[in-house]
């Protein structure tokens, strides 16, 4: 098992270096320079422009800038935002809990509904439930997030007035963040109604962000189950007279879970992409919205640092998924 883990870790090093090159290169491929954008219509004198470019270090050759960047990374310095003048890592950590909270809720919701729906659709293949749920999944998968979010806001917040429109908690509640997770902080605050307010604010963004992963998980579960249900050992189990619940729930599901877990792990990328839109529409102060703002403002260090931190996150989650995979499927860890 240890060899398996080290093997996986060894892969991370070149991946990490690759990511630093991509993160560094990506922002520089974007046309337009940050100083010009900051100046806007007002414009800027060429001398002042050169002075600011030098101040930010953008006037040096790219390879020098890159090496300097790596050197600072090695010292845990992810750069300083050109806009807010704060350390990128501090900004990231301030906003990260909001994204994690939303992402976790979304993936839990997607899993709790997606897996049972997929299993049921597979067991009752061809039934109306199968057709409707898989049809809905396809629609969900194709749904433009921005439009979907706005639609839910208009229906649930505007017309029915069941949920708040946006934000993380009602403005009536005001307490400094302790963990950064609003559900936990609202409980810790001891203020009456704070937790309920946080939950109601989470509802719509969670649904919106969960929509695509839910569709993917349901469809993946269904196809994995169908494959497994056709296996000999399942037929044998059925022939032995085991109850359907046991055959499906224990024998089939456990094996079908292997590709499903990989799929769930891969959803982290989808979640981050989805978080960018979901956070923007629900005014959710997380890293998705922050990244978009930073890209528009050509805040190189923030975009670069943000990309890198997100990439590290995805790598770590994938590693965990790989390890879990090993736990579930003994063949992998022994090979």
């Amino acid at each position: 098992m240890l060899r398996f883990i080290f093997g996986k870790l060894a892969y991370l090093v070149p991946t990490f270096i690759g990511i630093t090159i991509v993160a560094f290169g990506f922002v520089r491929v974007l046309p337009g320079d940050p100083v010009l954008l900051m100046a806007g219509e007002r414009g800027i004198a060429p001398e002042r422009h050169a002075q600011l470019m030098a101040q930010f270090g953008f006037d040096r050759p790219l390879w020098q800038q890159y090496l300097d960047y790596l050197w600072r990374l090695a010292h845990g310095d992810f750069g300083t935002s050109l806009i807010t003048k704060k350390a990128v890592l501090t900004e990231f950590l301030t906003l990260f809990p909001a994204t994690v909270e939303l992402g976790l809720c979304a993936i839990i919701l997607a899993t709790l509904i997606g897996i049972p729906a997929g299993v049921l659709a597979a067991v009752k293949r061809g039934s109306w439930f199968d057709q409707i749920s898989m049809g809905t999944a396809l629609v969900g998968y194709s749904m433009p997030i921005f439009w979907w979010g706005l639609l839910l806001i208009i229906l649930f917040s505007g017309i029915l007035q069941w949920t708040p429109v946006s934000g993380r908690i009602s403005l009536l509640y005001f307490f400094p963040p302790v963990t950064g997770f609003m559900l936990i902080d609202s409980l810790l605050s001891g203020q009456k109604g704070a937790f309920a307010s946080a939950v109601s604010h989470l509802a719509l963004p969670t649904i919106v962000l969960a929509t695509i992963p839910l569709a993917v998980i349901a469809r993946q579960t269904r196809s994995a189950m169908l494959e497994v249900l056709g296996e000999d050992y399942v037929r044998t189990a059925r022939a032995k007279g085991l109850p359907v619940r046991r055959v499906v729930g224990l024998h089939a599901l456990r094996n079908a879970m292997i590709p499903v877990i990989t799929t769930i792990g891969l959803q982290i990328g989808v979640l981050i992409a989805g978080a960018i839109l979901t956070e923007t529409i629900f005014s959710w102060p997380g890293i998705g919205k922050w990244m978009i703002d930073s890209i528009f403002r050509r805040d190189y260090p923030a975009v670069q640092g943000g990309l890198l931190l997100i990439a590290i996150l995805v790598m770590v989650v994938n590693l965990i998924v790989d390890l879990l995979y090993g736990l579930i499927n003994p063949r992998i860890r022994h090979n």
Partner: peptide, 16 residues
């Protein structure tokens, strides 16, 4: 802080 103008309008209508 509410970035999207349509969402700001909804918040105003909802009294938020």
């Amino acid at each position: 802080i509410t970035t999207d103008p349509a969402v700001r309008a909804q918040k105003l209508k909802a009294g938020e």
